[in-house]
């Protein structure tokens, strides 16, 4: 029986967050949350390992209280229990603070884990840093962008495709992987699954004090990186705007830029006779 931990983040449903250029703030409240896609693949990988070898799956998320939703979803899919890490002092942490916090929770809740599974990246920040940093915090071997996991002779057999290499790796237990979105398509939670997840789900809520976190290592203050400025990058060029029917616009493009196009494609372009007629009219 394997002890598995899956780290799951709740991310905004839309990839394009509504940005208000006037107030220069994010209209975050408009965005609904969902399970980060890659985390769904990591959970699916854990479920398949459990099915083959037997196991126990703990889903962990750090976020605002509303992030509990992804734990219900994880339990409905087949995770055995959930842990929500929520505290104002954890908010705004960078990947260093996040991985520290997740590591403390794992050491407290599942110290004898065999495998931690993360998504390879999140859709909102896509740093892909939390997994590798969590492996450092836990002092276990780690491998990113994994597409297949097998258990063999007391070790993990991993497959990945990175930087033009197809690699097969052997990793000691315990270890950590981050899972890509190419394989392990997440299953849909059944309706009964969802209902029973809400009815009798095992979710533990922990704050910074429960985890005895070092305040100097969490949240905004515990983050080595500081965001000093955020802006919307509209590098406006002085451009030509064309409007009208497709035919008219295309004629205009060729009238002005036929030479440029002909140069780039390395072919001569005929001048257009009915254009000329139109001009003489």
């Amino acid at each position: 029986m394997l002890k598995l931990v899956v780290c799951i983040k709740q991310v905004p449903m839309v990839s394009e967050l509504p940005w208000d250029p006037n107030t220069r703030t994010l209209k975050r409240n408009l965005a609904e949350g969902m399970m980060n896609p890659a985390c769904g693949h990591a959970l699916e990988a854990a479920l398949q390992i459990k099915k083959q070898h037997g196991g126990h799956i703990v889903a962990i998320t750090m976020g605002p209280p509303m992030a509990e939703e992804v734990l219900y979803e994880a339990i409905a899919m087949g995770a055995d229990r959930g842990v929500l890490l929520t505290d104002r002092s954890m908010a705004g942490g960078d990947t260093s603070a996040t991985s520290y916090t997740l590591a403390r929770a794992i050491k407290k809740e599942c110290p004898d884990f065999d495998l931690v599974l993360c998504g390879c990246y999140t859709s909102d920040s896509e740093t892909a840093q939390v997994g590798p940093q969590l492996a450092e915090e836990l002092d276990v071997p780690g491998a990113a962008y994994i597409e297949h996991i097998a258990v063999k002779d007391g070790a993990f057999r991993l497959h990945r495709v990175t930087d033009n290499f197809l690699e097969v790796l052997e990793m000691d237990m315990p270890g950590l992987v981050t899972v890509t979105t190419h394989t392990y398509m997440p299953r849909y939670p059944s309706l009964e699954g969802l209902q029973s997840a809400f009815a009798r789900s095992d979710i533990k809520i922990l704050n910074a004090r429960d985890l005895r976190l070092d305040p100097a290592k969490i949240g905004v203050n515990g983050s080595p990186t500081k965001i000093i400025n955020v802006y919307s990058p509209t590098a406006a060029k002085k451009n030509i705007v064309m409007q009208g029917t497709a035919k008219k616009v295309v004629d205009e493009i060729f009238a002005k830029f036929a030479d440029r196009i002909s140069g780039a494609i390395g072919k001569d372009l005929k001048t257009h006779y009915h254009d000329n007629k139109a001009c003489t009219k």
């Binding site: 839309v14 990839s15 965001i227 400025n229 955020v230 990058p233």
Partner: peptide, 13 residues
Amino acid sequence: SFGGNLVAEILTP
């Protein structure tokens, strides 16, 4: 940052 709509300037002071 924020899904590509925004650009953030970040320091490690």
